[in-house]
């Protein structure tokens, strides 16, 4: 359990580290170029991992609905926008605003899917997130 906690924390650190590294590349190239390198390097690493560990072409590989395979394309835009933002508003603002957008859109997606049994918690959470996002917008000290 302790190891799982450390791994999960480290995964979060790696998300932020990756964004910071891509933003550094975007400084001397462009945000889109940084996103390209992120994906091609990740692809090479995962190919090697897959060849070593196996499971690179599992059964049912192409049986998911077609739109599910658009995840990678969305990822290109996601990485590019993160690289662009971080140089302009800093790492913590980028991280928190993206997390806020992720949480609120997740709640909306749940509601659209008809899952509203946690409505009170979700509404309270969304209210706190909006308050936090508003706080980043206030001028002056």
């Amino acid at each position: 359990m302790t190891i799982a906690v450390l791994l999960a924390l480290f995964a979060g650190v790696l998300v932020a580290l990756s964004r910071q590294i891509n933003a550094r590349l975007a400084l001397s190239t462009t945000a889109l170029a940084a996103s390209f390198w992120n994906h091609i390097v990740g692809f090479v690493v995962l190919t090697i991992l897959g060849l070593v560990l196996g499971g690179l072409w599992p059964e049912g590989a192409l049986s998911a609905p077609w739109y599910a395979y658009l995840g990678g394309t969305l990822g290109v835009i996601f990485v590019a926008s993160g690289s662009w933002l971080i140089a302009r508003i800093g790492a913590i603002n980028t991280a928190m605003l993206v997390i806020g957008g992720q949480m609120i859109s997740g709640v909306l997606l749940d509601l659209l899917g008809g899952a509203d049994d946690n409505f009170v918690y979700s509404a309270l959470g969304v209210a706190l997130i909006i308050a936090g996002m508003a706080l980043t917008q206030r001028r002056g000290e």
Binding site: L46, T47, L56, A61, A64, Y67, A68, G100, Q102, M133
Partner: peptide
Amino acid sequence: AFASGGLLTLMVDFNGLVALHGNALYSSW
């Protein structure tokens, strides 16, 4: 940033769907 977070929600959803039919490594690959 907010829109990018929304994109992330969709992306996680889509990639999760691919992982469900294959596995996590395959989905990321």
